[in-house]
Structure formats: structure tokens, C-alpha cells
Amino acid sequence: MTAGTSPSLSMAPAVELHDVRFAYGAGPDVVAISHLAIPRGETVFLHGPSGSGKTTLLGLLAGVLRATRGRVQILGTDLTRLSNGERDAFRARHLGYVFQQFNLIPYLSVRENILLPVRLDAARRARLQGVDPVRAADALAAELDIAQALEKPVTQLSVGQQQRVAVARSLIASPEVVICDEPTSALDSDRRERFLQLLFASCRKAGATLVFVSHDMSLQPLFSRAISLPEVNTASAVALVEN
């Protein structure tokens, strides 16, 4: 399946959910969303308190989890109709992902961490369109103000630097969608804002749609759009499963 490459799909929204239900095993639904659409190029702030189904929703969007019902369309491709392997390949090609913290593989250098997506996936590498991967990584590092850290061992980086390395990794080879799962929670408020400015600039430059999840409402004004998860997710059992 060559998802997301045909012209008819290229204008599909970045994310579109229809009547999505998800439950862990035989348990109750933790995600129940009748409709949710995120247009391309937006910076979306997805907020909700702990236990509102944020991490589960991100798992669905990234294609790590498979909806029990409904359609999860990313760039027009319904992930629920892909096999496990196809979803992994789709994620490798089209998505960037930034964790809350501990984003880096400790035994790789900073540069190698940034290069990981293009090293592991040939289709992602092809998106560089001939640009040398190392150059692309170095350019991103310069943009995110971590060029001086490229040769350092990961363990010597500050938390802020680590998160910027993670952003560089998520953005290498210009994926269409970048998902961030509370990447600023470990940063203090000054750095938080600086980090977000860099994130936005880089996403804009890469042409990526940003889906940013956080419970920190103070960040909301910085985004082009905000979605309150408790309002969208009508599942009743969410708080029981998530934390």
C-alpha cells in the first residue's frame, strides 16, 4: 500500500478520526471519538488532564495501537486497514514522534540518534531526495541550536538539549506529521517557551503538521488550534486505565 502518495490523497487532512473506539483487550472503551479532524500545516494543542486517554490516542495516531472500531485516517490512509507491519512502515515514513523524556538511545551519538529514522527505513531516507543524511541531520541540529552537541555522548546533554535532539530526529527527512507527547514537561518555563519556538519554526520549515499533547494549559495560546480531549473523547472508562 503506497499510502499518502497519490495526488487525490495528498490534500486529505493530516489526521481524521471517524467513530473510533478503542479498548485494551476485552476491557471497556478508553477512547470513543465520533469525529476529529486536523488540517495539514496546523499546530494543534491537544489537552486534557491525566487519564483522559491522551497516550492511547497518540498510540492510535502513530499506528502502534489499532482501533477496535472506526477509521483512523492519517494523510488519507486508514491505519485500521493496514497490517501491523504496514502500520510500522507507515509510521517510519510519514511520522515523527517525540516522547515526554528519555528520547535518546544511550549508546548512539547525538548525530546517530538524529539519523536513526533514515538509517532504519529506506523509504524515509528516500524522502531526503538525495541530500546526504548526515548533512540533513547537521542542518537540523544547527536549526535547533544543538550543533555543538553533535559529537557529545547523549548522557552529557541537558534535558533541554535532549528534547531538541528528539525534535531533530522526528523532523529528519520531513515527515508530514509530528506527534509530541508532553515533550516540555521536564523543562522549566523559560526553556519551555524557547523550545516551542524552535519546534514551531522547524515544523513550519519542514511543512509538518504538529500534534502536541499536554496538560499544561499555559501553552495553549502559542498554538494555532486547541482541542480539549475530554470534550472529544466520550469514553467513560478512560480514567480507570490511564494514569
Binding site: 510500522d88 517510519a92 516522547f99 528519555f102 530526529r169
Partner: peptide, 16 residues
């Protein structure tokens, strides 16, 4: 486990 999750996030399948 953390390392595996990162690999998963960048597109590595369980087979990888």
C-alpha cells in the same frame, strides 16, 4: 524497554 520504545517510535516493527 525504553530503547525498544524509541525504536518502535521511529518505525521499527517488532520484527526489527
Amino acid at each position: 524497554r525504553r530503547e525498544m520504545a524509541i525504536l518502535r517510535a521511529v518505525g521499527a516493527g517488532p520484527r526489527t
